[in-house]
Amino acid sequence: APAEAVPAAAPATPRSRNVRSMEERRACEERLGQVVEKMKKEGIDMSQWRLGTFQRTICPQCEGGSTEERSLSVFIREDGTHGNWTCFRANCGWKGYTQPDGVPKAYQAKKDSGNENESDQEVKANQPVKVIRKLREEDLRLEPLCDELVTYFSERMISAKTLRRNNVSQRKRNNKIVIAFTYRRDKVLVGCKYREVSKKFSQEANTEKILYGLDDIKQARDIIIVEGEIDKLSMEEAGYCNCVSVPDGAPAQVSNKLPDKDHDKKYSYLWNCKEYLDP
């Protein structure tokens, strides 16, 4: 008897590209929703969440310090597979990483091993290259310290002579008179940090980070490094001119191993002053 014919299986119904894209979109939206909710539980909240780009907001851990600086950098991948954040205030440094449920932690493993995929490299490639500003004295409109600020320093046992030698000045900034600590290398202006009497700080943006008082250690055999500019001035009053201060205060934590120059952003001022510090 002839073999019974087996009916051919019906061809699978083709799924349109629109159907697949809708499913992918829903899955992506679900992942993004989870990442955002997890960040909110950490205290991170944005007025508007943008994907695939770095955003700045106030850090919930340090609250931006006395200046309420928007120091927390937040990033969420466009596909919602992860989000991360870092506070760039030197005395905070809070950072974290989160993923939606059910997503393997492959990206974190790649990140730790240095094996990033093309998408990760593309994110890095699209980050703007920081251009270092060259400051000019006339642009900052610095002025000699007024009598009130000279008195402010004298109450801290810092003389007018020391202030003049260190080029401590004042400037009107945001409708306030602020103290201006000028950062110089070979007497050339490199950066400027401002301090209000209320101890709120700000700096000229996109300038090279160096130590304050750098020229004072050019020929020094022993070097004293302190936390702030006023500490450096106080050391000079005590007879120690071989002293510099760091530009961003003392950090909350340090790495267990020395990173290379290109990745060591927090201590870039040490790399930039390496020739002064090498024995």
Rank of each mutant, 00 (worst) to 15 (best):
Q34D: 11
H82S: 07
K38Y: 10
L32Q: 08
L32R: 11
S71I: 01
C28W: 07
E78N: 09
L32G: 00
K40M: 11
M39K: 04
M46E: 06
E24I: 08
N84L: 12
V74H: 05
C59S: 05
G33E: 13
T57Y: 06
R77Y: 09
N84F: 10
R50G: 01
E42D: 10
K40W: 08
R26E: 15
S66Q: 12
E29M: 12
G43A: 10
V36I: 13
G52R: 09
T57S: 06
L32W: 03
Q55P: 00
K38G: 01
K40V: 08
R70H: 13
E78K: 11
D45S: 14
H82V: 03
G33T: 11
L51F: 12
R50Q: 14
A27T: 09
Q61C: 09
T81F: 09
F54W: 10
N84D: 13
R70E: 15
L51R: 05
I58P: 00
R31S: 02
G83C: 04
R26C: 07
P60L: 11
T67Q: 14
W49A: 02
S73T: 13
R56L: 10
V35H: 06
D79A: 05
G33M: 12
G83F: 00
Q48M: 12
K41Y: 09
W85F: 08
K95D: 14
E24V: 00
F75R: 06
E23F: 06
R26F: 11
K40L: 07
P60C: 09
R56C: 07
R89Y: 04
K38L: 12
L72P: 02
E68H: 14
W49K: 01
P60M: 12
C87S: 03
C59D: 02
T81A: 10
L51P: 01
R56D: 12
L32V: 08
A27L: 12
F88V: 09
R89M: 12
G52T: 01
E42W: 05
Q48P: 01
E69Q: 13
G43K: 07
G33A: 15
E23Q: 13
E42N: 01
A90F: 07
R50N: 11
L51M: 13
S71V: 06
R31V: 03
P60F: 10
E63I: 07
S66P: 00
A27Q: 15
V36W: 02
D79K: 06
A90Y: 08
I58L: 09
C87H: 05
T53H: 07
Q55A: 02
